[in-house]
Amino acid sequence: MIKKVLLVLFFIVLTGAIAVTLLAWDLSNFSHKPAGTEQIDQQIVIRSGLGFNQVTDILYERGLITHKWRFRLVARVKKADKKLKAGEYLMSTDMTPIQILDKLVSGKVLLHRLTIPEGYNLNQIAETAETAGFNKSADFLFAATRSKYARELNIPADTFEGYLFPDTYFFPSGVTPDEIIATMVHRFWTQFPDEFRTRADELGLSIHQVVTLASIIEKETGAASERPLISSVFHNRLKKKMRLESDPTVIYGIEDFDGNIKRSHLRAKTPYNTYQIRGLPPGPIASPGRDAVKAALFPADTSFLFFVSKKDSTHYFSKTIAEHNKAVKKYQLRR
C-alpha cells in the first residue's frame, strides 16, 4: 500500500516537474519571440495610474504581444509588473516581450526634437515650442517671464530673455514649460565657463551686460567671422560714449514690427532704442550662441566705429563717419 502511495506521489511530482519545465520553456520561448518578423513601429502612451493589466491590453491590441496571459506571467516572474513607468513609447512589432518590458521598466520614453536657432527671442522660442507640440506659446511665455523663477535659476534678470541657450534638445511629451526652460538655462551655464566670467570682470562687465551685448552681436550678423569685428565696433563706441545705433535693438522695442524699419522708429523713445539711449539696452534682445558670447568678451583689436551691410550677409567696416557715409552710398544707396 505504501509503495502504491509513494508511486502515485512520485508520478504527481514528476508530472508537476514536467509541467513546470514545459511552462518555463514555453514562457522562455514566448519572451524571446517577437510578435512579428517585420518592423512596424507603434507609438503607445502609458498614462499615469494605468494598471498592469490595462497596459497589457494596450500592447495586445496594438499587435506588440501575441498572448496576454503569458506576458503577464513573464512580467510577474521578472517582478516587472509593478515597475512600469508612464510616458509615450516607441515600440515595434519586431521587439520581443522581454525588450518591451525592459523599455517600460527603464522608462526609455519617446523623445521629441526641439531646435532653437541662434538669435531667437522669447516670443519666437515660445512659438517654436508650440509648433513642436510641447506647450501653448502663452504658457511658455508666462513661465519665461516669471521673475521669481528666473531668480531660482540664478538668472540676473526678471525674465529669461537671452538665457535660453540656442541648441537642439530632446524632450518627452508632457514636459512642462518650466522643465524646458530649466534645461535650456542649464545648457547656457555650461556654455559660460569660468574663463568667460574672468574676462567679463576684466572688462568691467556683468554677466547680464555680456549677454546683452552678445545678443546684439548675434542679431547684427549671420557671418560667424564678423562677430569679433562687430563686437569691436560696439566696444569702441561704448568707450567713446557713443550711441550704439543698432537697428535690431530698435526693432526689439517695437510692438508688432512689420519688417520695415522707418525713421520714426529710430526716433521712438523706448528703453531699447540705441539711437536714443547711451550705453547698452536694459537686457538681451535674443538668445546668443556661444560664438556671439565669446565675441562680446573677446572683440577684435580694431579702430572701427561704423559698419554697414553690403547686402550679401557681410558688412563694410569704417573708422570715420566720412568713410562710413561713402560706404552707405555704395552699398545701400547704390550710388
Rank of each mutant, 00 (worst) to 15 (best):
R187A: 11
V250E: 09
D102M: 01
F304W: 07
N325T: 11
N29M: 07
I65F: 01
G51S: 08
G49K: 07
R47K: 15
L280K: 00
K85W: 10
Q43W: 13
E255L: 13
D139K: 06
S264I: 15
L333Q: 11
E130S: 14
I207G: 04
R335C: 11
L101S: 07
L111H: 05
T56A: 02
S318Q: 08
T145A: 00
E88H: 05
R243M: 15
F304D: 01
P97K: 04
G119E: 03
R151Q: 14
P177L: 09
V105M: 01
P288A: 04
A286G: 08
L7K: 15
G283Q: 06
L266Q: 06
R267Q: 08
A182H: 07
S48P: 06
P282F: 12
Q42T: 12
K319L: 09
S287F: 07
L213N: 04
Y252I: 04
K326L: 15
H265E: 02
E179R: 04
R267E: 12
R187N: 14
M242F: 10
Y163Q: 06
D247R: 14
V45H: 10
A144N: 09
Q42Y: 14
P248F: 02
A35T: 11
T66N: 07
I125H: 07
Q43K: 15
G51R: 06
E220T: 00
I181Q: 03
S48T: 13
F196M: 15
F171K: 10
Y89F: 10
Y275H: 07
V105I: 05
I285P: 04
I116P: 00
I44C: 02
T270N: 12
K33P: 00
D167F: 08
D158P: 03
E195W: 05
Q191T: 11
F71Y: 00
P97G: 08
I58N: 12
K294C: 04
G222D: 03
I40N: 07
